[in-house]
Design a protein around this nucleic acid. Structure first.
Lengths: 257, 257
DNA sequence: CGAGCCGTTGAGGGGATTCAAGCTCAGTGG
DNA sequence: CCACTGAGCTTGAATCCCCTCAACGGCTCG
């Protein structure tokens, strides 16, 4: 079988606000934070005016979470909505037979905890891949905004649809085709979420395996091959850089023209 | 590579109301239809009272579509919402390299065309697997209902979340594990959508391959094996019956204990 | 400095793909 | 009526990719 048994060694279980990075300012009143938010236009509060924004932003925390921090626990009703301002987040689902699958990757502008609005428990464990900056909107505030204004409901629906779409694309893109090709597509995907210095998140081989539906050794072999081919350079701390041209070329020929 | 090139021979392209079954009553005024609808409680209008219902139901058509009729075209903004009252519907997505993947299966109670509310084109082609009864709600009516009352918005979000969840489950369940196991899980899934006589939709082998991410010959071998094992009996017209106990037993041992 | 985690690499075997042929069945037209 | 055709299903044979099992090295951390 393909997948490993459940727990990664390193996943950090956190209380709602624990596992913050040192530099974090969790409850900072942040009139400026929303107004300057780089994802404001694409994210949840895109439609709200500055006035409404300034009324609510004191309630919103914008914590910084370290890699492997758990944002939503499987089986729990999320008690807040989270907008991802920077970094990458993964959704892990465990199948009946005890295998872990990573079913979604969410980056900047993405919304986490939508089930909370419905008071449904999360089917997935949501974990930070990299250091992640999120914007935390308590559930009752989200409720109030959603029922009051219509822009917000619209924005929510857009997010839901986007999530649906991304999930389908991910599953056809990353679970289909030869191993080398899948790894290439993953790198391509991760490159979209590169940080300011152009570095991407480099998953552990076991995580790659859970994402791509293959054995970790197979993932390792593919990575080694791509490193030798000059497509990929590993960096410390589970980071890496890719050579865009080499990646594109490798993708083209692996897709078969 | 796993998938075939795009077109199935038999998919019927239809204008919005074409390809109806002979017995269909497309524009029948249907005060009774909603009130008696078997999926009303789980579906979109669950929260509406009878009065509202009787005001709107004249606008709603409840056509019957034949197998292989296209409900939503890829790339088009759906011009209505559809609630599935009976039958099974598939969502086909074509990857960049020209392979078809079936990314969702939607049965009774499911909602189709959610993107329409956002005026987004559909990423998938939505096609009837079996003869399908749907309830067709024109987009402007859906808009009006959604903005007016809040129950409706809630129901919509529930549907969206359900779709998201189903899609993830489908992709981990059907694209993971050995071929025989995947086929067994598909049959199990299809059995949930059996019709009144207990018959299930039996996909063509190529469709199974697109659902399960395997070669059609592999799907064929698995089906033949299950037929010989007494798990499955094929019927005319792409239908079949399964022996529930035999299926359960086969699943247990294929999962490994 | 041993223990554990993580990544890498090798060897071997098995399952899936690929290529190919044959079969049934429905529709068509001579 | 029956050959002809094409679509769909099945099955065989050969190849190859990936999984499994295994060993080893680097690294961090107690």
């Amino acid at each position: 079988m393909l997948m490993r048994r459940v727990p990664y060694a390193s996943v950090v279980s956190i209380a709602p606000m624990a596992a913050l990075a040192p530099l974090s300012t969790p409850f900072h009143p942040q009139a400026h934070v929303c107004a300057e938010c780089p994802v404001r236009s694409e994210a949840l509060f895109g439609g709200l005016d500055d006035e409404t924004l300034s009324r609510i932003d004191t309630v919103i925390a914008s914590p910084v979470l370290l890699a492997d921090a758990r944002i939503v626990a499987r089986g729990q009703v999320p008690n807040a909505l989270y907008t991802v301002r920077a970094g990458l987040v993964r959704f892990e689902r465990v199948s009946a037979s005890g295998e872990r699958h990573i079913v979604r990757l969410v980056g900047r502008g993405g919304l986490i905890g939508l089930e909370g609005l419905l008071r449904q428990p999360s089917a997935d464990e949501v974990v930070a891949c990299t250091t992640v900056k999120v914007c935390r909107i308590p559930l009752d505030l989200a409720d109030a905004l959603g029922s009051g204004r219509n822009d917000m409901a619209m924005a929510l629906m857009r997010q839901w649809q986007r999530a649906l779409d991304d999930a389908a694309n991910l599953s056809v893109g990353l679970r289909t085709g030869a191993a080398r090709l899948r790894v290439l597509r993953l790198l391509h995907h991760l490159a979209q979420h590169a940080d300011d210095e152009g570095r991407i998140w480099m998953p552990r081989r076991e995580e790659m395996a859970d994402l791509l539906g293959m054995a970790l050794e197979t993932a390792s072999r593919a990575v080694s091959g791509l490193r030798r081919a000059g497509v990929l350079s590993l960096l410390p701390q589970r980071m890496a850089t890719v050579q865009p041209e080499a990646l594109a070329a490798a993708l083209r020929e692996a897709e078969g023209r």
